[in-house]
Amino acid sequence: MLDDFLVRAALAGIGVALAAAPLGCFVVWRRMAYFGDATAHAAVLGVAVSLVLSTSILAGVLVVSLVMAGTVSSLSDRGHAMDTLLGVMAHSALALGLVAVSFVHGVRIDLMAYLFGDILAVGKADLAVIWAGAALVLGLMGRRWSGLLTATLNTDLAHASGVAPEREQMILVLSLAVVVAVALKVVGVLLITALLIIPAAAARPFSRTPEAMVLIAAALGTAATTGGLQAAYWLDTPTGPTIVSVAAGLFALSSLAGRIKASTRSAAADGDR
């Protein structure tokens, strides 16, 4: 079954979608979208570094993304003009990475595969890495769930309950670097943040609790990756962007449904009066 490239692609997409669901929810709740961008874009630099040092791409991406995420995280603790600073870092990381890759001679690399992903080329070894990474992230999130959630609500409240918000932030940073490293092959650096935040945002209107939002985001993410894969196959379009387009379509539908739900509820409330 794993010999079929479409099956491998679907399994890779589902693995990434599952890991992205809880992390994506935290990225949305904590307003870390640029943080995700900076970490993901640094991955190109990681690719360049590993080509120069001829180490494995995975290791290079993981290390550089982790360094970037750590830097951004420590800067954000100072808490001034974060939006601008993160924007600067996210796009500088991408630009620097692209420049660095151009210096690497002798190795012909398919830059597009790193920018937009190459899910159809996922091999059995890639699949193992993706699922190991996903399992790691899901395990971390599951173990630390309550602490992460409390720290996200309010850092003082967390301190008073004996939860250390700095440690929870580190766990998110680590998970983000892992998701970037394993999602690189699936959607590419430019669209990783999209895969994190779009399913989570689409899940919001139908969720009453944080846990429900994660489960719905996981379902929507899975639907977007498998649906996008299918659509890309039929339409002969690039797979990564097609997956994100399907996710965007789901988000549009969910926003519309959320609107309708809200307006019928307020109409019902008016009727009660």
Partner: peptide, 14 residues
């Protein structure tokens, strides 16, 4: 963006 019922809130972090 964070959905939270009162009873869920009461159960944080335990």
């Amino acid at each position: 963006t964070l959905p939270m019922t009162v009873s869920r809130f009461m159960g944080l972090p335990r």
